[in-house]
Design a protein around this nucleic acid. Structure first.
Lengths: 240, 240
DNA sequence: CTAGCCTCTTGATCGGAATCAAGGCGCGCC
DNA sequence: GGCGCGCCTTGATTCCGATCAAGAGGCTAG
C-alpha cells in the first residue's frame, strides 16, 4: 500500500463492511467481498465530510464519482422547474450512491444532518471493478435490488392511497426482525411527503389518524412507536 | 458449436444486435458485444413464442431465466390484491427482461400481441456472464440506465399532473430524432392509464384536450401524430 | 347485414388530497 | 426569561382526477 493512501478510508471502509449489528454489511457493496479486495477498494477511497443540506452529487452533472455512506443519512431526489420535488429514496450508512447514473447523475443527493462518505473516483473505481469480478457481481446485485425497490415505489406512487403510502413507509423503516417497534425518523415531514408523493399536511394528518386508531404512538415528532404492525400491514397491502 | 444449439436463436440474437434501423442495438444487451461473444450467448438461448396476454414471467415466482425480446411488445406490471395495477414499464424488441429480480421476479411481464423472445436459463446465463466481462459490463450499464428511467418515473407518478404525465408519455415514445412525429401505440388506453397512474377516462380526456389544442392529431385511436412538440415539451417539464 | 363485444370517448357527479389559513410547540440565541 | 424562527399539527375550503353512467365506433362471427 503506497504512502499516498490515507489510513482513515481503509479503516472506514473496513468498518462499513463489518458492521453486522446495524445490518450494513448486507446492503453495502462491500458485503461478501474478500478482505484483500476490500483493502484495494479502500486504497482508492477518499473521505468526504458533508454538513446538513450539503449537496453530495447533483442531478445532470457529470458522474465523477461513486460514494459509500459511512455515517449519516442522505436524501436522493429530483426536482421540477417550478420547485415540486420527488424524493426517490433515502440512503443509510453502508449504502452505495451513483449506480443510478449514466454519463450524468440521474438524481441529486443531499446530506440530512452530518454525513461521512467514502468517495471513489469513477475512473479508478471502474478500473478496479474490472479487476475484481466479485465487486462487479456485487454491483449488479445491488442494482437489481434497487430496481426491485424502484418498482415497488412506482406501485406506491401510482396506485396507493395516502393511508396505504404512510403505512408502507412506516413498515419499510421498521427493522425486519421483531424489535421494540421504535422508529427514528432522521428526515423531516417535508422529506417524507416528497418521498410519498403527498403534502406535509396529509402526512401529518395520516400519522395523527394512525395514532388515534392506536396503531402507532408519537411522543416526539421524529420518533414513531409501532403498536399494531399487522393492522398497518393490512392497510399497506390494501387487502379489500 | 455443438449440435444441440439450434440455429434459429443464433440468427435471432444476431438480428437483434444489428437492427440499427430501429435503434435496437443501442438498448440491447447485445450492443457492443463482439461477434463471437454473441455466438456464445446465442448458444444458450431458447426461442420462446408468446400469444397476446400470455405471461412471460410472474412477480414473486423464482427468477428462472432472463429474456431478450426479438419481436413484439411487453407490459411490465405489479398488482395490488384488490386489482389495482401499476404498469412499471413497456419493453420493446431488443429489451432485456429479468434484471429487476433478486431470487424472485419483481414484476410480471405480459405479452402485448404476439411476442418472440430469446430465453436464457438463469444459471447458464450467469455462468456465461462471468466468462464474458463485456457482457457483465453491459448488464450493469443497462441496469444503471433502467434505474435512471425508474427515477424519472417516480417524479412523474409522485409529482406530475395528468397533463404533464400524458405529455411526457407522448414525448418518451416519440423517436429522438425529428421524424414525422407519428407514434404507433401498441398498448391500450388501459395500459397507458396504468402506466401513468391515471384512469382510462383521464387519459382519453387529456388526449382529446391536446387534440383540441392542436398539439396532436388522432385519426385512429392507436396512432398519434405530434403537431406541437415544443408545446408538449413545455407541458411535460412543467415550466411555470 | 346484423348482433354482440370490446375499446374508446364524453358528460355528470363525487371524493380524497391539495391548498389556504391559523395556531402550537420546541429550540437556539440574545 | 422572552423573542424569533422552523417545523409540525389541525381546521376550512377548493379542485383535480376518480367514479358513475351513457353512448359511439370498430371488429368479428354468424
Amino acid at each position: 500500500m503506497s504512502v499516498v493512501t490515507p489510513v482513515v478510508p481503509r479503516i472506514v471502509a473496513g468498518r462499513i463492511a463489518h458492521c453486522e449489528r446495524c445490518g450494513v454489511r448486507a446492503r453495502s457493496v462491500c458485503a461478501s467481498l474478500p478482505e484483500n479486495d476490500l483493502e484495494r477498494l479502500a486504497s482508492i477511497a477518499v473521505i468526504r465530510q458533508c454538513g446538513p443540506g450539503e449537496v453530495i452529487m447533483m442531478e445532470g452533472e457529470p458522474a465523477g464519482a461513486y460514494h459509500n455512506i459511512t455515517s449519516g443519512f442522505v436524501r436522493l431526489h429530483k426536482s421540477l422547474p417550478d420547485g415540486r420535488e420527488q424524493v426517490t429514496g433515502f440512503a443509510r450508512p453502508g449504502d452505495f450512491l451513483g449506480l443510478a447514473a449514466e454519463d450524468n447523475y440521474g438524481v441529486t443527493a443531499t446530506a440530512i444532518g452530518a454525513v461521512q462518505l467514502c468517495r471513489f473516483p469513477r475512473d479508478r473505481f471502474r478500473k478496479l471493478m474490472h479487476a475484481l469480478p466479485s465487486l462487479e457481481d456485487r454491483l449488479l446485485e445491488v442494482a437489481s435490488h434497487e430496481l426491485v425497490i424502484a418498482q415497488e415505489r412506482m406501485l406506491l406512487l401510482g396506485r396507493k392511497t395516502a393511508r396505504e403510502r404512510v403505512a408502507s413507509f412506516l413498515l419499510d423503516l421498521a427493522p425486519p426482525c421483531g424489535e421494540t417497534g421504535m422508529i427514528l425518523l432522521p428526515m423531516t415531514r417535508s422529506d417524507i411527503a416528497d418521498y410519498l408523493g403527498l403534502t406535509i399536511e396529509t402526512v401529518s394528518r395520516t400519522l395523527s389518524a394512525f395514532r388515534r386508531e392506536q396503531r402507532i404512538d408519537i411522543k416526539v415528532a421524529n420518533q414513531v412507536q409501532l403498536l399494531d404492525r399487522n393492522g398497518l400491514r393490512r392497510i399497506a397491502q390494501a387487502r379489500a
